[in-house]
Simulated scan of single mutants.
Amino acid sequence: MSYEIDARTVIGTVQLRVSDLQRSVDFYKEVVGLRVLKRDGECAALGVPGSEKPLLALREIAGAVPRPRRSGAGLYHVALLVPDRRSLGLALRNLVASGIQVGQSDHLVSEALYISDPDNNGIEIYRDRPREEWQWDGEGHVRMAVDPIDWDGLLAEAADAPWTGLPAGTTVGHIHLHVTELPTTEHFYVDLLGFNTVAHMADSAMFISAGGYHHHIGLNVWAGVGAPLTPDSAPGLDYFEIVLPTEDEQMTVFGRLQAASVPLRTERGTIIAHDPSGIQIHIIVRGPA
């Protein structure tokens, strides 16, 4: 690969469609632990203390019917990265108290909790292990697994500390997508955008990142090869942001997509494109929080 996207690239705001905005706002406040930054009509922006930049944006589609998981291309989950293990323990304790079903996995590079919102949008809450503990093979692929987490150890980290929601420093660590098929998807994200492939899961999933992270974007065909994009009239993913550190880098990406004849439009400094599955991507420049 001749071009690599800037190592400082991260995932920004993820906008989700929901069927009942008030119900979703209550869920994300009380169960997930986000706070409302702004609410305007059918939309709400959610984040954490210390930053006015939203992690999630919600848009109500009145009367929309939630679809089963893995029913089309679009969101598999959006992953909220907390700054330390104690924060993850507190989140776990709150999820247990809420009565929601909680999935879990130790990925070696991270410990992760999995839930679904009222519209079956997938949410991961996780913490990273220190980078020096990550293991890489000779091909530059990171070693990951799906082992059980230390549930009791996480709850012990929380001890009797009060739950006040997800803490300052929480970010969107990555996003995981159902896609229509992998070869054209890999070409778009790796060959054109310049992400690096860091892991594969047989022929059904791949993981890509910038700057040696374990993954910023997961891509899978678990909804079926050829799965159509989840329609705009249903709950699901509206778009996600790829955040670049400089305008020069943004213009480089713009030029690469334009040269490949990828349909683009610009809106107030944002490049708006769609990947081969039709998933909308906003490519933006944003400074520190």
Rank of each mutant, 00 (worst) to 15 (best):
V82I: 10
N120W: 09
P118L: 04
S116T: 15
E42H: 09
K53M: 12
V198A: 02
S24L: 06
D152T: 12
A159Y: 03
S2A: 15
L88T: 10
V48Y: 10
V109I: 06
L46V: 05
F207S: 02
R23W: 01
A289M: 02
M201H: 11
D191P: 10
P235R: 10
T252A: 15
R35I: 13
A260T: 12
I283W: 05
V31E: 09
D117G: 10
D248T: 02
T164L: 14
Q280G: 03
G89N: 09
V190L: 14
Q104G: 14
F27T: 02
L166E: 09
S19Q: 02
I11K: 08
D84F: 07
V221Y: 06
L182C: 06
T13P: 03
F207H: 00
D238E: 08
S71K: 04
I271Y: 07
L154W: 11
A158Q: 09
P167E: 05
R23C: 01
Q101L: 13
L46T: 05
P162D: 04
L237D: 04
V25C: 07
P183N: 05
Q104A: 15
Q135L: 06
R35H: 13
V285P: 05
N121L: 12
T9Q: 02
R39P: 00
Y126H: 06
I115D: 06
P130C: 11
S19T: 01
D128Y: 06
H216W: 05
P228E: 04
E241R: 04
L229S: 05
